[in-house]
Amino acid sequence: MAGAVAHAWSGANARNYENSAATREPWWVKWTIIAISLAFFSFFLLLPLVAVFTEAFRKGIDAYFAALSDPDAVSSIKLTLIAAGIAVPLNLVFGVAAAWLIAKFQFRGKQFLISLIDLPFSVSPVVAGLIYVLIFGAQGWFGPWLSDHDIKILFAVPGIVLATVFVTFPFVARELIPLMEAQGREEEEAAVVLGASGFQTFWHVTLPNIKWGLLYGVILCNARAMGEFGAVSVVSGKIRGETNTMPLHVEILYNEYRFSAAFAVASLLALLALVTLAVKTYVEWRAAQSFKEE
């Protein structure tokens, strides 16, 4: 979630609480709370994750790889990579620019700007898809002009990229803003006073400080970009082998009752989620290490 790296080093060790009579609970209270939380966690979070992999391999490993090498599956994987490959760099550049602006300068309306950047978080993915239909669709603002010039945005790759950019819009910015705010601007100011150019300052001073947060922001943005379903399903038109992303391919297979194949493709996306969480854990650990060194 937003600001994970910035907050990673704020934690005290649980033992500090358990060693003082004033801040600990009786052992039975402690273990009841742990048992309830773990039961809830396992039932609601762990079970679905295990189910994805169990269902994917239900018909054996051959069926699993057959499902993944199906031409429609391969084309959906390609399209997903293309869409994320365009959307993530766009939001990366925006995230860095917005975080630089918000963390390094004081100006009026800053809080309002932060709220606007957060806006896509609270818009339903279906609405996110709909807004591009209203603009580029056949009855939309630019629809007639686009069809006169034979440019396809909706039900084609550009529409999918636009919808993906919208839903993953705030991720990099939200990860970087708290991190860059916490680091202040003295180091950059010193660099500029010593004669560094703006780009040199960013590259040699700011970037080394934010690289771990930046990495996590990009990885999370990428996971969401590859996994987006609602917004993309509105703008894609779901043309098989052409405008189907991986999540849409999962839906089609599932609706055709080809469950094992659906879960096989889904398991790739679940793996991506697990890698994302592993990177996050590593990044938090690195942030904690560098905090200890200081």
Binding site: L49, G227, G230, A273
Partner: peptide, 18 residues
Amino acid sequence: SLVDLPFALPTAVAGIAL
């Protein structure tokens, strides 16, 4: 680490698993 799973797991995958 796994508490963030719903942020990272695509919604359609969660949907069919549930």
